[in-house]
Design a protein around this nucleic acid. Structure first.
Lengths: 156, 156
DNA sequence: ATTCGACTGAACACATTGTCCAGTGAACAG
DNA sequence: CTGTTCACTGGACAATGTGTTCAGTCGAAT
């Protein structure tokens, strides 16, 4: 579960040059190929590295608008709402949370006008009492993991 | 910028079996290797596929707690706050938004207790007036893109 | 002292990659 | 109708990387 410095360097290297091979990595890191291969296998079976799926940019797909919606759910309707939201392609992510709302989801849409359609579809479901939406303007820090990996590689 | 059905199948296939090669993809999809290669190149230079970075699970790294924080910023301090938050490794993502708060960020921490430390570090900065935090309990829909890709591949 | 785990450096057959090419067919402009 | 452009096909080639195995080294723990 804990990762060491070499693991950290492997992940960072992989993050910077995703198409790099095991052999090239071993050269860059100055260790044997078998070592890198074994570390990678371990990181993957550990679940530290979940996969190498392509990172798709919704904006490039024609969905430049992102928003976060906080939902209030009628008691006992949680499971139904989850199932409902899972069927909406524009819902990229859904969490249940403590605090003001009961759920929080990330939405994308083709335009601000289209966002209305998406929200209507999201909240057009019995179990949802109220929704409050925040539209994303800028994204100064895009989803990142490297700083955390570096911290984990040092501290541990 | 618009993607067609073949593009969609390539992305979905890649998302399901990330380590698959171009040759194997061409076999599965029933097209020539050169075609898949050309499509992939185009998708990447389009920016539709941003990369193939490893997906790292913060929980497996020792950060099982996720939270969303909504921040209110003192007028004119936006840039400073952005720079401050970018230095905190536990800040995985930062957006500026419309609505109640001015910014919204995703945090991770080693425990609920550790979350307090992270929040203190986040808000321990002059430009931040107020922060309200929602801790994530469940994640019924993890960050996903396939349904949107399928929709984009059809509709267009 | 011994055992264990991790790492090294090397080897092997095999598959995949990057890069060409000529030929086909569809769409489109003149 | 003709010529051009574009994407796709199917084939080829050398170069590289992969999966796998092996014996040997080293340090730490028992």
């Amino acid at each position: 579960m804990a990762i060491d410095h070499l693991d950290g360097r492997i992940i960072v290297l992989l993050a910077r040059e995703p198409r790099i091979g095991v052999l090239e990595m071993s050269r860059r890191l100055g260790v044997a190929r078998g070592t890198v291969q074994a570390r990678l296998d371990r990181l993957q079976s550990n679940g530290v590295i979940r996969g190498f799926g392509p990172e798709v940019d919704p904006a490039a797909l024609g969905y430049p608008v992102t928003a976060f919606a906080t939902l209030q759910i009628r008691q006992g309707q949680g499971a139904d709402v989850r199932a409902h939201l899972a069927t909406v392609p524009e819902v990229l992510e859904l969490h249940t949370t403590t605090g003001t709302g009961d759920m929080m989801c990330r939405l994308v849409a083709r335009s601000n006008a289209d966002l209305q359609r998406v929200i209507d579809r999201v909240v057009g479901f019995d179990g949802i009492v109220r929704a409050s939406t925040a539209i994303v303007m800028e994204n100064p820090v895009p989803l990142r993991i490297i700083p955390l990996v570096e911290q984990a590689a040092l501290g541990d």
